[in-house]
């Protein structure tokens, strides 16, 4: 069972530009190899979904893209992660990376501040000279939250419902106008109606942003992703799970005619 780069070419990529790419990426926590040999070229202004069983390293991978893994002491990697050709781990400031590559997390995590201050935070932190009122309105409209909160911008972000909080987090993430928005299972803590709202929002955002979304929900990937990458995990000798990329292709292909047996089993639900 050797899975390497040969399955990860995406022919359709030829007509769009690559936003983020990895080359022979290995991710370690201390001595433990969490993710190995990942080669991917993620197209810009598309929705790319990362799917796979838990422990397959999909969240680990997404956190390499905005260098959030830097917060973990034992983390290191070899290989390359590039952003429009620029190596994100060579002479680049992590803080600057995150201003280009935003992120939405699994649990809605608004700051314990007003809705307004949540959105304005990024502009204030990055010293962006802009009309904050307009920025707040634009970001909230873009994330389809404006109508619900326009009369209570001064109330605490934590007072919103879970789905509203997550849309607030999306508004916050796009307020700094990043190129790429990473989403780590953004709907996993939400009810079905909120989930649908966020999914359609993500589809709309893809016109403007490159979206990379981790999800454990295959239907979700099938519904909204242009491209899907399937990751798998195998047990190492010491009982931990080490992840690798099995297949990366247009979503249609992953679900209808996957090249790999493992992918077929997973999308048909015959897996672990």
């Amino acid at each position: 069972m050797e899975h390497t780069a040969q399955h990860t070419d995406v022919p359709a990529l030829k007509n769009t530009e690559t936003a983020i790419a990895t080359e022979q990426l290995n991710v370690y926590y201390g001595d433990f190899l969490a993710l190995r040999g990942v080669n991917m070229a993620i197209p810009e202004r598309k929705v790319t979904a990362l799917i796979g069983p838990s422990g397959c390293g999909k969240s680990t991978l997404i956190r390499c893209f905005n260098r959030l893994n830097d917060l973990i002491d034992s983390f290191h990697l070899d290989g390359r992660v590039t952003y429009y050709g620029q190596d994100l781990y060579q002479d680049v400031d992590a803080v600057q990376v995150r201003r280009r590559i935003g992120m939405v997390f699994q649990q809605p995590n608004p700051f314990p501040k007003s809705i307004y201050d949540n959105i304005a935070f990024g502009a204030r932190a990055t010293g962006l000279k802009t009309d904050l009122d307009a920025l707040v309105e634009r970001s909230l409209k873009r994330s389809a939250l404006w109508e619900e909160v326009k009369d209570k911008l001064k109330t605490n972000g934590l007072s919103l419902s879970g789905g509203q909080q997550q849309r607030l987090c999306i508004a916050r993430a796009i307020s700094t106008q990043p190129d790429v928005v990473l989403m780590d299972e953004p709907c996993s803590s939400l009810d079905p109606i909120s989930t649908l709202k966020i999914e359609s929002l993500i589809r709309e955002l893809a016109e403007e942003y490159t979206i990379i979304i981790v999800t454990h929900n295959m239907q979700q990937a099938a519904r909204m992703a242009d491209y899907t990458a399937f990751f798998n995990a195998e047990a190492t000798e010491d009982g931990k799970r080490s992840g690798y990329l099995v297949e990366f292709a247009p979503t249609q292909k992953i679900f209808d005619q996957p090249a790999q047996e493992a992918t077929r089993n997973y999308v048909n639900g015959q897996f672990g």
């Binding site: 600057q96 201003r99 280009r100 873009r142 016109e207």
Partner: peptide, 15 residues
């Protein structure tokens, strides 16, 4: 609105 992007895509990340 899409044109308001402050960092043109692909521009190298500055220090």
């Amino acid at each position: 609105m899409a044109s308001s992007t402050s960092s043109p895509k692909g521009k190298p990340i500055e220090a």
